[in-house]
Design a protein around this nucleic acid. Structure first.
Lengths: 97, 97
DNA sequence: TCGTCAATTAGCTAATCGTCTAATCATGAG
DNA sequence: CTCATGATTAGACGATTAGCTAATTGACGA
């Protein structure tokens, strides 16, 4: 949980996720969208991988990154539901204490 | 946005929010729930205040903290909605498109 | 086997974070 | 005013973070 929020706390990484929401992209394609060096982007990818928010698969010389929406959903909506902020079908509960 | 996610990235601060979800509490009451020093807790409160996730009001010698659910909701659900994970503005309704 | 390209690792720096103790501020009681 | 209490500020310290350049790895094509 901490790793997810930590990953989301950086604007660059949030933007990466938004880009991946459109379609899977290679590390190079993603890096081209930002003003920082490729090694820096690689570090961001590692943070996202550690948070289990993206999936990396090798394709020839490239690495294709895909967003894992279910993990993002679990973290965000699960946490929100704990505060009664969202009704995720089965996650609604009544804290009687 | 970054400040909110950064605030949520620490387990102590998430727990503070969960406690405040039950009822408003003073800094001392909150600090008593954790194993860290009061100045450390005060620093956590500052992070939460900077993220606009809590509100602090002075009451005599004490300071009462209250959660600002609407801000948490805005950040979490707003971001989730950007990924099609939750309905945009109707928390009652199902997906409207 | 080489050379090239995509990506990551290695090594470094500056800044930020979480934590502590000690000191300070602010309020209410005597 | 003086003291005690609740809370924050000041200052320090180790760990982590985001960033860079340079070097390395891994997968092609010639």
């Amino acid at each position: 949980m901490s790793t997810v929020f930590k990953a989301l706390s950086d604007p660059t990484r949030r933007r990466v996720l938004e880009l991946l929401r459109e379609r899977p992209m290679t590390a190079g394609e993603l890096a081209a969208e930002f003003d920082v060096s490729k090694p820096t982007m690689s570090a961001h990818f590692t943070v996202l991988k550690d948070a289990n928010l993206v999936d990396a698969t090798k394709d020839g010389k490239s690495v294709i990154y895909r967003i894992k929406l279910s993990v993002l959903e679990d973290a965000l909506l699960g946490f929100a539901a704990a505060f009664g902020l969202c009704s995720t079908s089965d996650t609604e509960k009544e804290e009687t204490g």
